[in-house]
């Protein structure tokens, strides 16, 4: 067992896991409140990445700073999507809602393809290559920042959930929908806001990823399925769960890459996914359903 290799796999896994947790944080909120599997999550992230890219190319705005602009913009976009597309189908069969978000994903991805063509773009910030070593393990600063962003967003969301009125309303709605309505919570508004916040989070995630990941219309697909796995693993609606879930998935993938033959690392993640779905569908941190 090569110690250096193991260390690198652990470090990379944690960093990668941070990125997954980052992408999943918005999704778990949407999952928790609206109870839909949002297939368009990756596509929204992709749009967020393009937004940061164009701001960089146009006015030289650093991608980290661009979050201040893109997050609010995507909040509004998220609310709009929820109102126009999701809300009218609120009472539709669950699988139809799934297909709805799938159609939305196809639409958004190909809108990007039409607007900006399929070639890869890179956002080259001057500090893109910054890295340091821990022992023999490489740590890329940009990935560390993304992982840090994941933690920050997770705690921010958690804080919002615990300590604000909005958070209380969201919790009420997630746990007991009819009861929430009876108490006078504006369910429609909360749903829109939740989707908006989720979209803002994933756009921020996109911005944080641009220093080290290419930008193209199909970029969201790389993260979509991982985000689902993380959300299920961590528990629907549980932000800290999404963070921990992300770390677990990242570590599994990275260790798989280091020690399994071929490209079987993908298998590890799916096996975990199926096991969780079968034996603990509420996730590691969710409450078992009665």
């Amino acid at each position: 067992m090569n110690g250096g290799l193991l260390l690198q796999a652990l470090v990379s896994g944690l960093l990668l896991g941070g990125v997954y947790g980052l992408v999943a944080s918005g999704l778990t909120l949407i999952f928790g409140v609206l109870r839909i599997i949002n297939f368009a999550h990756g596509a929204v992230m992709m749009l967020g990445m393009y937004a940061s890219y164009w701001l960089w190319v146009g006015i030289g705005l650093d991608p980290y700073a661009s979050v201040l602009l893109t997050a609010p913009a995507f909040f509004v976009l998220g609310v709009a999507i929820e109102r126009l597309v999701i809300e009218p189908n609120r009472d539709a069969a669950e699988h139809n809602q799934l297909l709805l978000t799938l159609g939305l994903a196809l639409f958004l991805e190909n809108l990007a393809l039409v607007l900006w063509q399929g070639d890869f773009r890179t956002l080259r910030v001057p500090y893109a290559n910054a890295s340091f070593v821990i022992g023999e393990a490489l740590v890329e600063v940009s990935r560390l920042v993304a992982a840090g962003g994941a933690v920050a967003i997770a705690f921010a969301l958690y804080g919002m959930l615990r300590y604000t009125d909005l958070g209380k309303a969201i919790r009420a709605l997630s746990e007991e929908r009819e009861g929430a309505m009876l108490v006078g919570i504006d369910v429609r508004r909360i749903r829109g806001v939740a989707f908006g916040i989720g979209s803002a989070c994933v756009a921020a995630a996109g911005a944080l990823i641009t220093p080290f990941f290419y930008i193209a219309p199909d970029v969201g697909e790389s993260f979509n399925i991982m985000a689902f796995v993380v959300v299920v693993l961590g528990g629907m609606g549980n932000f800290l769960g999404a963070l921990v879930g992300g770390l677990i998935v990242g570590l599994a993938e990275s260790l798989g890459a280091a020690f399994l033959p071929g490209s079987l690392k993908q298998l590890v993640v799916f096996v975990i996914f199926v096991l969780v779905l079968l034996f603990r569908p509420e996730g590691l941190f969710g409450r078992p359903r009665g």
Binding site: N89, A93, L100, G103, N110, L111, L113, V114, G118
Partner: peptide, 22 residues
Amino acid sequence: GRAGADIMLYGLVLMLVISFLP
């Protein structure tokens, strides 16, 4: 000649069908 425009429309059609012809 417009890459992806057809699938974009396809996605739109899908959303419309789900919404109006469930």
